[in-house]
């Protein structure tokens, strides 16, 4: 056998070996994940019902539900999205399209990269002193939403920059050559062409935020809530002064979220509460997977629409 044949044969074995290794590791990872989900489903699926979704937490496991947690998660996400998206996109556009490369922007860039790696509980601590005490927001939905916004801000900034960077320079030049100002190039070209990438990053970031527990517990989110935040323009009870609630009063309300509710149930004795936690976990997983699926759909949509 010539040496070349030997080399080729060896490489083929190498190739096959790596394929087998990769495939088996993937299968193992999927099996573990599948087992976890199955276990969760076995424990929790029995508890999942309309009344579970629509009831408040209770001392009796069979009557307890996640209504306040679902609504709380929703409102907190609204605050997070409405603050993190404009701030993060603006910061990303500034860093990518406006700022000059100098030591100052280099420091900012390194910090943003590092912020993405800071443990979430540290954000909770920062938020506790900043939002809850300094700004006096209390343990409110507003404080919770802002905390999570802080947490995902680096992700949104990085996603925005990546999306902008994937737009070829010749498109920018074409727009500038038409006499567009920098703002017009951003507004009429760069942002529309990067919407897909930005939206994907934002959705992934939100799906991370929806599962966060530690920072919210740190700022003092409640674990047992038997009321809903005031819906805008709904009637206010007589003993509270009557009339209608304002559009933003819910921001000031106490809240709990799905993962905190889960945490609370897990820490209680008895299988019944564990089943409740598992059922809430299923809801949380469905929400997360739903967001991720949305991200994939958005990305594919934009990919089909925009080519260079």
């Amino acid at each position: 056998m010539t040496s070349i044949e030997r080399v080729i044969r060896f490489r083929r074995y190498q190739d096959i070996g790596f394929q087998v290794l990769g495939a088996s590791l993937t299968v193992i990872a999927l099996l573990v994940l599948g087992a976890l989900v199955l276990d969760l489903a076995k424990t929790g699926l029995g508890r999942l019902s309309w009344s579970f979704l629509a009831s408040f937490p209770s001392r009796k496991a069979e009557q307890a539900g996640i209504a306040s947690a679902i609504v709380g998660s929703f409102y907190v996400m609204v605050v997070t999205a409405f603050t993190a998206i404009p701030l993060g996109v603006a910061a990303g556009v500034y860093l990518e399209e406006y700022s000059r490369r100098n030591w100052f922007t280099a420091v900012i860039e390194i910090n943003i990269a590092n912020l993405a790696g800071v443990p979430s509980i540290v954000y909770g601590l920062m938020a506790l002193s900043l939002f809850v005490y300094t700004f006096g927001l209390g343990e409110s939905i507003l404080a919770g939403g802002l905390t999570l916004a802080l947490l995902i801000l680096p992700i949104v900034i990085v996603a925005t920059r990546e999306a902008l960077r994937s737009i070829p320079q010749h498109i920018r030049e074409a727009a500038y050559a038409m006499g567009a100002t920098r703002w017009q190039v951003v507004r009429y070209h760069l942002l529309p062409y990067s919407t897909g990438g930005i939206a994907t990053g934002v959705i992934i970031a939100l799906s991370r935020a929806i599962g966060e527990t530690a920072p919210l517990i740190t700022i003092g989110a409640l674990t047992f809530i038997a009321f809903l935040p005031p819906t805008p323009f709904s009637p206010r009870p007589e003993e509270d002064g009557g009339g209608l609630y304002g559009p933003f009063e819910w921001l000031d309300s106490g809240f709990t979220v799905l993962p905190i509710q889960m945490f609370n149930w897990v820490s209680r004795p008895g299988d019944a509460f564990l089943a409740n936690a598992a059922a809430a976990g299923i809801v949380l997983i469905v929400a997360t997977l739903g967001l991720n699926a949305l991200a994939i759909v958005v990305r594919n949509r934009m990919r089909r629409r925009i080519r260079w």
Partner: peptide
Amino acid sequence: PIEMRMRIGMVFQKPNPFP
């Protein structure tokens, strides 16, 4: 420069229409 670019058009080497 923006005034100049409005008064003087440019066509590039590679066709670069907007998406």
